[in-house]
C-alpha cells in the first residue's frame, strides 16, 4: 500500500450521518487555543510587570497610543466574527452560498485590519522596537497578534478555495468549524490586547 492514497475501504466507509457532539478536531483546536491564550496572557502580564517596574509609562516620554482609528479597526476585526458565525450556521444547513459569502466578508474585514496595522498604524508610530522595553513589548504583542491574523487569513483562504471546489457539505465541514473557531479566538484575544496596550495606557 502506498502511503499517501486513502484506502478504498476508508473512503467508502465514510457515511453521511450527522453527528451529535463535537469531533476530535474541534476539541483539539479548543485545547490549542487555551495554550495560545496563555501565550498572550504571559505577554500581557509581562507588559504590566514592566509597567509596574517603570517610573513613567510609556517609557522615555513616548505618548500613549492614539485611540480613534484603532478603535474603528477594532470594531472591524471584532465584527468579522459575525459573518463567520453566519457562514458556519449556513454550512450546517447545507447552504454553501452562505459559506462563500460569509468567508469572503471575513477575509475582507480581516485583511483590512491587517492592512491598517501594517501600512498605517506601524509607520505612524514614533518609536522603534529597539528603543526601550515599552516599545519592545508593544511591537512584540501587536505583531504576534498580527501573525495570528495572517495565519488565520491563510487558513480561511484554503477553506474558501475548498468551498468553491464543493468539498463542504452539511455533514462534512470539520475544517470550517476548526478554522472558524481559530478566527473567533484571534478576534477575542484582540479585545485583551487592545484593552491592555491601548486603553490602559490612557489610564492615569
Amino acid at each position: 500500500m502506498t502511503t499517501t492514497e486513502a484506502g478504498p475501504d476508508a473512503a467508502a466507509a465514510i457515511t453521511q450521518e450527522p453527528h451529535g457532539g463535537r469531533g476530535t478536531a474541534w476539541w483539539g483546536m479548543v485545547v490549542l487555543i487555551m495554550t495560545e491564550a496563555t501565550i498572550f496572557a504571559s505577554l500581557l502580564a509581562s507588559y504590566f510587570f514592566l509597567q509596574a517596574a517603570a517610573k513613567e509609562w510609556p517609557l522615555d516620554g513616548i505618548e500613549a497610543p492614539e485611540l480613534s482609528k484603532i478603535s474603528l479597526m477594532t470594531l472591524v476585526l471584532l465584527g468579522s466574527s459575525a459573518p463567520m458565525f453566519w457562514a458556519e450556521h449556513g454550512i450546517r444547513k447545507g447552504q454553501v452560498w452562505r459559506l462563500k459569502a460569509g468567508l469572503i466578508m471575513v477575509i475582507l474585514m480581516g485583511s483590512s485590519f491587517f492592512a491598517f496595522l501594517s501600512l498605517y498604524e506601524y509607520p505612524e508610530l514614533t518609536f522603534g522596537m529597539k528603543d526601550n522595553a515599552y516599545a519592545s513589548i508593544f511591537y512584540m504583542t501587536t505583531s504576534l497578534h498580527g501573525a495570528h491574523v495572517v495565519i488565520g487569513l491563510l487558513m480561511l483562504g484554503v477553506v474558501l478555495i475548498k468551498t468553491f471546489q464543493g468539498k463542504f457539505t452539511a455533514e462534512r465541514h470539520v475544517t470550517v468549524e476548526v478554522v472558524g473557531l481559530y478566527w473567533h479566538f484571534v478576534d477575542a484575544v484582540w479585545i485583551f490586547v487592545f484593552s491592555s496596550l491601548y486603553l490602559s495606557a490612557h489610564l492615569k
Binding site: 522596537m129 529597539k130 528603543d131 526601550n132 522595553a133 519592545s136 511591537y139 512584540m140
Partner: peptide
C-alpha cells in the same frame, strides 16, 4: 537577535521578568 530591550535594565527592561 533583534536588539529589543525586554531584559535590558538600560532600556527599562527587567532581568527578573
Amino acid at each position: 537577535l533583534f536588539g529589543t530591550q525586554f531584559y535590558e535594565v538600560a532600556g527599562g527592561g527587567s532581568p527578573l521578568l
